[in-house]
Amino acid sequence: RWLSFAGVTFQPTETVKLLLILVIATVFLKKGCGARVQYWLLGFLFLTVGLVFLQPDLGTALILGVIGVALFLTSGVGLTRLVRVSIWAFGVLILVATLIYFFHPDFFSSAKLGRFAFLDPFNLHNLDASYQLRNGYYAIGSGGVFGNGLGGSIQKLGYLPEPHTDFIMTVIAEELGVLGVIWTIFLLMLFTFTALY
């Protein structure tokens, strides 16, 4: 899941996201949106997502699946054909999940099921699985309206294991407060609208 090269640690699956977009978009552009092309691309998507899922990296596998579905939705595929392909894909997914459950039940470990700890993070049974989420809440709460000042985050000093990735917004909330979060969201929306335009 993680490789170190020349002192830099990175996830190879980050390049897979870009390559998946390029491959599916190029095939749709060159070959069109025919049924054969869709089923071939769907198989390719399942293979890519399945390999990442078996690393195991459930989060990135889900992101790759969402990217693939978004590409199918924006490719110009007709709605009826898209519904048929979606039903087929959902059936295959259910079949694969059932086979994994019966032949390899420990695959659905408590670590994977711990992803649902966000539903009740302060439950005594979820304290380990929801550690980062709870500390994210503490960071947001301590920031208040105006924040603790740029660089004044306490939670990023070890309480949030990955403050620079998934939980960067909690650090922004702690340091710059609600106003800083609103400003950051405004800048992200401006960037998105400009890119779409």
Rank of each mutant, 00 (worst) to 15 (best):
Thr74Leu: 12
Leu99Ile: 15
Ile24Phe: 07
Thr80Ala: 11
Gly151Lys: 10
Val181Cys: 15
Leu160Gln: 07
Ser130Pro: 05
Leu179Ser: 00
Phe146Lys: 09
Val27Cys: 08
Gly147Cys: 11
Val66Gln: 10
Pro12Phe: 08
Tyr131Gln: 06
Leu176Gln: 00
Gly68Ile: 09
Leu3Trp: 11
Gly34Gln: 02
Asp106Trp: 09
Thr194Gln: 00
Gln55Phe: 00
Gln155Val: 03
Pro163Gln: 05
Pro161Val: 13
Thr15Met: 15
Leu95Phe: 15
Gly143Lys: 01
Leu187Pro: 02
Phe10Val: 05
Ala70Asn: 04
Ala61Met: 13
Ile63Cys: 09
Gly158Ser: 12
Thr13Ile: 00
Thr98Ser: 14
Gly91Thr: 08
Val178His: 06
Val83Asp: 02
Leu29Asn: 08
Tyr101Leu: 14
Ile87Lys: 13
Ser130His: 04
Thr98Ala: 11
Ile24Thr: 10
Ile67Val: 14
Ile21Cys: 07
Leu187His: 03
Tyr138His: 00
Ala97Gly: 07
Ala111Asn: 08
Leu157Phe: 02
Ala173Pro: 03
Leu82Met: 15
Arg134Tyr: 03
Leu119Gly: 01
Gly50Phe: 10
Phe46Met: 13
Ala139Phe: 08
Gly7Asp: 09
Ile168Lys: 02
Leu29Tyr: 10
Gln132Ser: 12
Ser4Leu: 07
